[in-house]
Simulated scan of single mutants.
Amino acid sequence: MLFSLVSNGTPLTPDRPDATIPWWSYTKTVLAAAALTLVRDGLITLDQPLPEGPFTLRQLLRHEAGLADYSELSDYQGAVACGDTPWPADEMLQRLDATRLRYAPGEGWRYSNVGYLYVARLIERVTDLDLNEALSRRVFAPLGLPRVRLASREADLHGVNMGAAATYHPGWVYHGLLVGPLVEAALCLDRLFAGDFLAHSLLDQMQTVHLLGGPIPGRPWIAPGYGLGLMHGPVEGGRILSGHTGAGPGSVVAVYRSIFGPDVTTCAVFSDGTDEGAVEAEAVRLLSEHWV
């Protein structure tokens, strides 16, 4: 496994040139941050209904909008495994019957990549920029992260450590797939919470969660919850973590932040394979060792 630690804004581990990785669903944290800058600037609100359906931005960010997820489609899994060209987004939505809500918005919880596709479209619509440029201007430039970018073609993954996946088309991640250095994944989360990028009231709302129940088998969560683009809750050992895990064909990344007394530490861990629990457990272990 590769890892990067940041403590109180300072990287504690070397910046490895071979550690440019896919951020997978950690991209959702960045999309949430970008959307919250639009709320911060008065361009949208968290609780206004959106054109895509009878749900709000808050419900999309917390996976409470009633939407299904394209990973449920067996044809999707098969097409990715075969290395097929990604379907156009509208075709995917049609195959999924995405306009049919699986529960009333706000009355349930179901992890949905489709919800974050709608968040990405909202960001583009409000900023009048393509997603890569919008994220660069609204998140990466202000946070001082120059090497993160959106991958949209297979060629964009050249030089990216894709783990055990020999080939992959990033177009299969419909909300967008960010790639960047492992250390910048850790710095992104650290700087998102450490400075004045977002008001404390918005950061508090990011960490106000929909509780998902008790422990998750095979993973270190004791009472996990999902906030606005964040997994948040206590883990084994009693510490509270905020961040996100992302998994794709051939690799897993886990980026988490926690506070222990005056010490604020963020850890990013990347591994070949598909065992999300093992990568999360390694993040917990590294953070625990740092606090000793």
Rank of each mutant, 00 (worst) to 15 (best):
T10P: 01
V39Q: 05
V80P: 00
V253H: 05
L61P: 14
W172D: 05
A194N: 02
L46D: 11
T274E: 14
Y256D: 02
G83N: 09
T10A: 05
T27H: 15
S258E: 07
L2A: 12
L122S: 01
S258M: 14
V183T: 13
W291Q: 06
A81E: 07
W172A: 03
P14Y: 05
S152N: 14
P234F: 08
P170L: 11
T20N: 13
E72Y: 04
V252A: 08
M92R: 13
P11G: 01
R239I: 14
G225A: 07
D272A: 15
G53C: 14
A281L: 02
A199C: 04
T27Y: 12
G246M: 02
F197N: 04
L36I: 07
I123A: 00
M1W: 02
L202F: 03
P181G: 10
E276Q: 11
Y226M: 05
L73A: 10
G250N: 03
W172G: 06
D90I: 05
P217T: 00
P217G: 00
M92V: 13
I222W: 06
G115F: 00
Y116H: 05
P142M: 09
R257T: 09
M92P: 02
I44C: 06
L93Q: 09
D272G: 09
T127M: 03
L117N: 02
V119N: 00
P11F: 01
V126L: 12
